[in-house]
């Protein structure tokens, strides 16, 4: 088994340098992420103020949920599958295929490194949001530690899902339609739009069979105190399982995908 740790570190470091060079862009990106959760936050706070708590979510919980949402969103940003269309059809991927390590590792570690800078940019934004909306939660050190672990695990799962979808570009240059469907499912079933507890029971049942909630809702709930210690450990187990499944999906598809590569345009 090849030791990839030095490569992961070198790529992450290079990516951090790159993001630091464009720190203004990183700041604007993080601000851009805020629009979506602030809309959700304002809507659901209003609903909770008028209708009371919904399945354990009151004003404080919704507020905390959407503030932590912004951090988890920064964590689970991954290579957009749409990038593959151009990457493959233009032949630009040739450069990466000539190296002895799959571009998967470079992309995974590169995005991980970029997050360090994005998170540094996120901290003042989170403090501002917390002062503005004052979420009434008291997370423990354990919950904070588990948020860190589960958010990284969520990143790997989401990275794998998007990567596998991106690999479809080796078969068709028009994979975007399918990608849009999966992104829509993710929006509904991950807790990105609303906490799954607010959704109908059958939607919650469907989401429990899919990987999406483990990339988004689970790390948030870990931190805002919606889960027991046992549920947190079980959740981490599910995340490990989804990492294995999605990684296996990547390995199987990657071997077939590169056989399809025609290297046109390079």
């Amino acid at each position: 088994m090849r030791n990839l740790a030095p490569l992961y570190w070198a790529e992450a470091k290079m990516s951090m340098q790159q993001q630091a060079q464009y720190r203004g862009v990183a700041f604007i990106n993080v601000l851009g992420f805020l629009i979506e959760p602030i809309v959700y936050l304002v809507v659901w706070r209003t609903v909770a103020e008028q209708a009371g708590a919904i399945n354990g979510y009151g004003v404080d919980e919704f507020t905390a949920y959407y503030i932590v949402w912004t951090l988890v969103r920064v964590f689970n940003l991954a290579l957009a599958p749409g990038a593959w269309d151009w990457w493959v059809s233009s032949g630009r991927i040739s450069n990466d295929l000539l190296h002895p390590v799959s571009p998967y590792h470079r992309n995974l570690s590169g995005f991980a490194g970029a997050k360090i800078v994005w998170i540094a940019v996120w901290i003042p934004v989170a403090i501002f949001l917390a002062l503005l909306f004052r979420p009434g939660i008291q997370p423990t050190l354990f919950q904070a530690g588990m948020l860190f672990v589960s958010a990284w695990a969520g990143y790997v799962i989401r990275f794998n899902i998007l990567y596998v979808m991106g690999l479809l570009s080796f078969w068709t240059t028009r994979a975007q339609a399918l990608i849009e469907v999966v992104i829509a499912l993710e929006l509904l079933l991950s807790g990105r739009l609303v906490p799954m507890a607010v959704m109908p029971q059958w939607v919650q049942d469907v989401s429990s069979w899919l990987p999406f909630k483990w990339t988004f809702e689970f790390p948030i709930e870990v931190f805002i105190g919606q889960l027991t210690t046992t549920e947190i450990w079980q959740g981490l187990g599910y995340q490990a399982g989804w990492i294995l499944i999605t990684s296996a999906g990547y390995v199987l598809l990657w071997k077939r995908a590169i056989k399809k590569f025609t290297a046109v345009g390079s």
Partner: peptide
């Protein structure tokens, strides 16, 4: 975006 030396350093890690 980065100086050449940084890319070379990644190559060193990649090719061990």
């Amino acid at each position: 975006d980065l100086p050449v030396a940084d890319t070379l350093d990644v190559r060193r890690a990649m090719y061990r």
